[in-house]
Simulated scan of single mutants.
Amino acid sequence: MTAQVDTERPVVIASGDQLKAKRLPTWAPVAVAAAAIVLAAGLVMGTGWGGPVLTGVVAAVLFIVGLGVAGGVVEGRRAGSNRVATTLIYSAFLLALAPLLSVAFVLVTKGFERLDGNFLGTSMKNISAFDANGGAYHAIIGTLEQAGIATLITVPLGIAGAIYIVEYGRGFLANAIRFFVDVMTGIPSIVAGLFILSFWVFVVTPIFNDGRPGYSGFAAALALSVLMLPTVVRSTEEMLRLVPGALREGAYALGIPKWKTIMKIVLPTAGPGIVTGCMLAVARAAGETAPVLLVAGGNPAINFSPFSDNQSSLSLYVFEQAGVASQYAPARAWAAALTLVVIVLTLTVLAKLLARRNKLAR
């Protein structure tokens, strides 16, 4: 029995206009935003309920609701819901970005007031609280030396620990290392400073210093290393786990030893992510104040040696200047904070460019 096909029924072909979904005009969001602002100003400021902040909040709510209603009427319920969700995502992004931009704006505007050659080239030695001169050269030297020594200590140890956890570690020992790294991530900086103070300053250094405690920039670097280590280990571990297993298997199939596979294939592949994690650790270490205050003590004069005598840092300098009752101290504090941010930003950019250059060279 064969099926009969109705050849007499006309076939309707959809036109181009029928295939196109209706969409709001490009000026519709702007019009909805303008209407929301006018309506919010009339409801809030016109009635005396609040000021510009409340007006902005009400206008944002009215804009989201109005755009969703307009999109639902013209484009359909699904498209209207999509517009609302997209607007909420962009709003969340702007809310998260607003504090960062506000802090950056205040930091730059107030920091440039005192950021000059005198500030960058002099120290606070023989500078009183009521002296307009004085700078942070000694603190810049201390920050670079302490963060540099901490990086030299921490990065090899952290990368080696992550390699062991991912590539070699199995069973109880690997789980124990991972657990203690997670615990160290939440250690307050003051605890790290107290640990180095009680162990290195009061126990180790008196052996080589005629029984006297040895406060120094190196002790501050050790305390910063304790804070940096968990960040380096965890970030490196996650980056190593992202390396495809097929790369390892291909190297093993070619007869390449495991250690050479890790050094020549795994680490270079995860290199950019590892650099990012290390720079996050450096940024945290450069901004710590409590460990430096406990084990380095601070010093208004220039001290190029991190292994002897007290030493200052930019974070400690900001802390000290913020607590000085002087009309010149706040400007110095803001300038030091801006200098610290510029140093960290410069190091981060250089590290990322170096990692990118090495990746392109391969």
Rank of each mutant, 00 (worst) to 15 (best):
A28L: 12
A28R: 05
A28E: 13
A28V: 13
A28W: 10
A28Q: 13
A28C: 12
P29Y: 10
P29S: 12
P29I: 09
P29Q: 12
P29M: 12
V30P: 05
V30W: 11
A31K: 05
A31P: 06
A31M: 13
A31R: 02
V32E: 03
V32T: 11
V32Q: 09
V32M: 10
V32N: 06
V32I: 15
V32H: 07
V32W: 05
A33C: 10
A33F: 12
A33I: 12
A33N: 08
A33K: 09
A33W: 09
A33M: 13
A34H: 03
A34E: 04
A34F: 10
A34C: 13
A34P: 00
A34G: 15
A34W: 01
A35G: 15
A35T: 15
A35S: 15
A35H: 09
A35W: 05
A35Y: 04
A35R: 11
A35D: 08
A35Q: 10
A35E: 06
A36I: 01
A36L: 04
A36V: 02
I37S: 08
V38Y: 06
V38F: 10
V38E: 00
L39V: 12
A40L: 08
A40V: 05
A40D: 06
A40Q: 04
A40S: 15
A40Y: 05
A41V: 12
A41L: 14
A41R: 14
G42R: 03
L43K: 05
L43D: 07
L43T: 10
V44R: 01
V44W: 00
V44T: 02
M45H: 02
M45A: 11
M45R: 14
G46L: 04
G46I: 05
G46C: 06
G46R: 08
T47A: 13
T47F: 08
T47Y: 04
T47L: 11
G48I: 02
G48K: 04
G48D: 08
G48H: 09
W49R: 13
W49A: 14
W49M: 13
W49F: 13
G50F: 00
G50I: 01
G50N: 01
G50M: 01
G50T: 02
G50V: 01
G51A: 12
G51I: 03
G51D: 11
G51T: 07
G51Q: 10
G51M: 01
G51P: 02
P52D: 12
P52G: 11
P52L: 14
P52R: 14
P52V: 14
P52Q: 13
V53C: 00
V53H: 03
V53K: 09
V53R: 12
L54Y: 00
L54D: 00
L54C: 02
L54Q: 04
L54T: 04
T55G: 07
T55Q: 09
T55H: 07
T55C: 08
T55Y: 10
T55R: 07
G56S: 13
G56R: 06
G56L: 13
G56K: 07
G56T: 11
V57N: 08
V57D: 08
V57C: 09
V57P: 09
V58Q: 03
V58I: 14
V58C: 07
